[in-house]
């Protein structure tokens, strides 16, 4: 892909840390959460018991996956108070912070699909099969209808996300096979296919993402020179345009519920266009002419004509 970069960019030197801070922080967070669950079985330090589906922290804090809890309730079973309480805590936390934080900061499958995404870019492969983004919402509805219709947690028989986490904490069995399938699917069949198009669990957490506080803002969008680095790396790149290409005082916030708050766009942007902020901060940094930035085709044409 041809990239348009402003020439004055060459003097910009960013450290490896700056180029990868949120990626590194995300990996550390993912490993931290996994470590909490593994410290018990591996080292006998029982801070957290259970799995992401349902857990008990420090023998006091119950957490339950609301995606599973909802299915259970749709089968007609009313869960115990601990389970309900755990579900409410998780829902509230993600609604306030950002629903799809689960996807990019907690979910163990994210490491797999990110790796697939990386390989996909390295091999410069075609996008492949790209089902509509809303397919996952239909999948979510299907999963819920299945729970209602069959009276059992049918999707849990194949849910790669809970399966992988349970496998890591309790023993993998054939779960490696499922992981390999998701990896190959995302690499060779469909770019960002699983997390970006199909996973009903991600769709569910996306629904909690409507009004959450943490948002990425393209507050410095006037500095953008259309290099497309962010679009290339973003697993949900349709969320960027409204914020980045907004005109005038249109909000620079990425408000789409599909944004996973992974912060990779902040990492890869040499021109510091993006930043993490809260949803009420609609500030736009107005551009100074002398700094590198978007090459306006009209002015650049005019400049060329003058010379």
């Amino acid at each position: 892909m041809k990239k348009q970069r402003s020439e004055s960019r060459e003097h910009i030197k960013r450290s490896l840390w700056q180029q990868n801070r949120f990626l590194i922080l995300r990996r550390l967070t993912q490993v931290f959460f996994l470590g909490l669950f593994l410290a018990g079985p591996w080292a006998g330090i029982w801070l957290v018991k259970g799995t992401l589906s349902g857990s008990l922290t420090l023998d006091i804090l119950p957490l339950t996956d609301p995606f599973l809890l909802l299915q259970t309730m749709l089968t007609g079973h009313w869960p115990e108070l601990t389970g309900l309480l755990g579900g409410v805590i998780v829902v509230l936390a993600y609604m306030v912070l950002g629903g799809r934080l689960y996807c990019s900061w907690v979910c163990p499958m994210n490491i797999v699909t990110d790796a697939a995404g990386w390989l996909h870019r390295k091999l410069d492969l075609k996008k492949g099969w790209q089902p509509k983004r809303q397919t996952r919402l239909y999948m979510l509805v299907t999963v819920m209808l299945l729970a209602m219709g069959t009276g059992s947690l049918a999707y849990e028989l194949v849910n790669p996300v809970t399966m992988l986490h349970r496998g890591l904490v309790f023993g993998m069995g054939f779960v490696w096979g499922v992981v390999v399938i998701v990896f190959l699917f995302d690499t060779f069949v469909s770019r960002h296919g699983w997390c970006g198009h199909l996973c009903p669990m991600g769709a569910f957490y996306g629904l909690l993402n409507h009004k959450s506080l943490l948002r990425v803002s393209a507050s410095n969008r006037e500095a953008c020179d259309d290099c497309m680095d962010c679009f290339e790396v973003c697993p949900e790149n349709h969320v960027i345009s409204p914020a980045l290409r907004g005109k005038g005082e249109q909000t620079p916030l990425i408000l789409s519920r599909d944004c996973t708050d992974c912060g990779r766009c902040i990492d890869v942007c040499d021109l510091n266009v993006f930043e993490f902020t809260h949803r009420f901060n609609t500030k736009i940094n107005h551009h100074n002419e002398n700094e590198p930035g978007r090459v306006d085709p009209v002015t650049s044409f005019a400049k060329g004509a003058q010379q």
Partner: peptide, 29 residues
């Protein structure tokens, strides 16, 4: 039937079993 509707496969019962009697079913065994 009801068990498969209610169990969220969290493994907490396994963890609290003092005799390691309980285990979680592996995929494909």
């Amino acid at each position: 039937e009801d068990f498969l509707a209610a169990c969220i496969r969290c493994g907490l019962c396994v963890r609290d079993c003092p005799y390691d009697t309980l285990k979680l079913a592996d995929l494909g065994d």
